[in-house]
């Protein structure tokens, strides 16, 4: 046996260059700044309740991470939420059993996602264009179904899931997100499925030539993304207790921001669940803190946009400068 080490010798400095580490430092600084500015920030109940602001998006961000690592993008998730919420409201109004309602809701999301996946793989069309189309289509279906009415009756279980706490402390949505994050991190980083997703994202052609079923994976990932959008729709509808067709409008951008800010390369092939989770907390704590300071939502929008561009632009700019100096 040859004695080739698995990794180069460990250097403390290397950690400092890790994206996850930089994100972590940013998160800690935000926590410190926030707690200095507002005395209400570090209140445990406040903090826990603040997770309601991002948990639903965060759930979708997990599958979106898979989609983006596999060199795809899905702009239709928010519209799928609209469709699934309508299904949720409609099936409830028909008086179906709770579990049937939930199953049909999840099914509707899965079908929407599968529809994306089928068009993308069958016709070999870039996902950004397909999902721009289905983004209008799905949202439009919700509008044409609901017109200007709304649903406000949901099964008790759904309302409870959306706004309730486990043991009175931990919001179900947040708990679901954390559990899913652990499962997804395991799948992505420890299993052959994860390795295949990286391989597809890095070089889809080479992956195909290595016998990896690229189209099958792409299809399944989009289906999953739809399914999890429906799951998010259940939490969101339960929390809002009223569903209009414009529900979750613009969320696709916020979700993609979560993923990209978390260090996932927009053209696929690299990124980690840990990075995305930290970035979700950064964005969540940021908007919570700014909210406490009475900064309106738009301030957060601008800040998020800047953060998104600078988090990618700044390192690559430094790199270019460094290369010029050499």
């Amino acid at each position: 046996m040859s004695m080739i080490p698995e990794k180069p010798p460990f250097k403390l400095l290397d950690i400092l260059y890790k994206k996850e580490f930089i994100l972590f430092v940013v998160l800690v600084s935000i926590l410190i700044i926030n707690s200095n500015i507002s005395p209400y920030f570090l209140d445990l109940y406040n903090l826990i309740d603040s997770t309601f602001l991002f948990s639903e998006k965060a759930i979708i961000a997990l599958t979106m991470t898979f989609v983006i690592i596999a060199r795809q993008i899905d702009l239709s998730v928010a519209s799928i939420i609209a469709v699934s919420s309508c299904v949720l409201g409609y099936t409830t109004s028909l008086g179906y059993d709770t579990w049937l309602v939930i199953s049909l809701t999840l099914l509707s999301g899965g079908i929407c996602g599968a529809f994306n996946g089928a068009i993308i793989t069958k016709f070999a069309i870039p996902s950004i264009i397909v999902t721009i189309g289905t983004m209008s289509l799905f949202r439009g279906l919700a509008y044409s179904f609901l017109e200007d009415s709304y649903y406000n009756k949901f099964p008790k279980l759904v309302s409870n899931l959306g706004g309730g706490y486990l043991f009175g402390y931990i919001p179900y949505a947040f708990l679901t997100f954390i559990i899913l994050a652990i499962i997804f991190a395991f799948i992505l980083h420890k299993t052959s499925v994860g390795k295949k997703i990286y391989s597809i994202g890095n070089n889809p052609d080479a992956a195909q030539y290595t016998g990896i079923a690229v189209d099958k994976y792409t299809f399944v990932l989009f289906t999953l993304n739809g399914l999890f959008s429906a799951l998010a729709a259940i939490f969101l509808s339960g929390r809002l207790s009223s569903v209009r067709p414009n529900i979750a409008f613009g969320w696709e951008l916020e979700i993609i921001t979560m993923v990209v800010l978390g260090g996932v390369y927009i053209y696929g092939g690299s990124g980690s669940i840990l990075g995305v989770v930290i970035s979700i907390f950064i964005l969540g704590m940021l908007s919570f803190g700014l909210g406490l300071l009475n900064v309106p939502g738009v301030g957060i929008i601008i800040f998020t946009g800047l953060l998104l561009i600078l988090s990618i632009g700044f390192p690559s700019f430094i790199q270019t400068l460094r290369r010029k100096n050499e």
Partner: peptide, 30 residues
């Protein structure tokens, strides 16, 4: 942002989509 900072066009224009829209609230107070 795209040419010099090398931020992919999707990310850049998704970002400025939010930023420019957000600035409207900012200048007009909503």
């Amino acid at each position: 942002s795209i040419a010099i900072l090398k931020v992919p066009f999707i990310v850049t224009t998704l970002g400025t989509l939010s930023i420019y829209r957000g600035l409207i609230y900012f200048v007009s107070d909503g």
